[in-house]
Design a protein around this nucleic acid. Structure first.
Lengths: 142, 142
DNA sequence: TAGGAAAGTTAGATTAGTCTAACTTATGTA
DNA sequence: TACATAAGTTAGACTAATCTAACTTTCCTA
């Protein structure tokens, strides 16, 4: 099944809202994704048709099993990318977040797997990149 | 001026074709970007209106100074990303190329700059990631 | 418990990027 | 050099994602 990066954003947003507020609503999706509520509605219709969410009329929004799988996949990519950009490259929080939000839709399985391994490799011995990203070791939380 | 990643692809393709064949034509853009020729035509109209290319009727396509600047910027990002994915992460050529083609439109200036520095840092002392990407040193061309 | 505000929905327009079908121009060779 | 074929263009339709305006439902509170 093919899904656009837009639709991936909606799935990810539902996941985030559910973790944050226990439930996801149209209004919150609208605020989080910075689109108007009718835009959310048409996205929800699309995702319902694809069997990725459940949405009761005038009610809450939930992920199906498959929808949650996709949402979590995107979210993991987002986190790995943010970590790499911020903690290894030293990109500032704001641009790291912005870039990660877009890159999360563009990296393939293999790239994701290897990136995660690479991050772990570097994290396990911080000295390895001493001299590149000054301040890294101090800034880190471990 | 804002430009979509689609339009960036067309600019980059013109640059590549000019380097490869000295000139760029509709048919070649169509083949390279895997779209039909009328699609190329409407993209060229859009880019001409924005002052990024020059296109003589039934003739060749060329980049303006600004168009070339944008094209080269994207191309550089593409190369840096390909290098990072292939040579540092060890992603295979095919997926590295595919991912780089999409990521080149999503990384910001700061991320690009830092990525390039990071690649150089690693390249200058290959042993630094010995143990992560086995075979890297042998496989490389330096 | 009735009414109004907040939330949600529907209808219909717009834009970007793509397509097919039909047409026009250019080119090379018989 | 005339004409067939290749290349390029135009017109018009479609889809995805967005919007505004107008409508409906829900729910809190006076």
């Amino acid at each position: 099944m093919e899904i656009t990066s837009c639709m991936e954003d909606y799935l990810e947003a539902v996941l985030i809202l559910k973790e944050r507020n226990k439930v996801a609503r149209v209004k919150d999706l609208s605020a989080l994704l910075q689109v108007k509520t009718p835009t959310v509605n048409s996205a929800l219709k699309c995702l319902t048709d694809k069997g990725l969410i459940e949405h009761e009329h005038y009610g809450y929004i939930d992920l199906t099993v498959l929808g949650e799988k996709i949402a979590k996949d995107i979210f993991c990519k987002h986190q790995a990318l943010t970590h790499f950009l911020e903690k290894i490259l030293g990109v500032d929080k704001k641009e790291a977040a912005k870039d990660a939000c877009r890159m999360e839709h563009t990296i393939g399985v293999q790239t994701f797997t290897k990136l995660r391994k690479f991050v772990k490799f570097i994290e396990d011995k911080p000295n390895i990149i001493k001299g590149f990203n000054h301040g890294y070791i101090k800034r880190g939380t471990h």
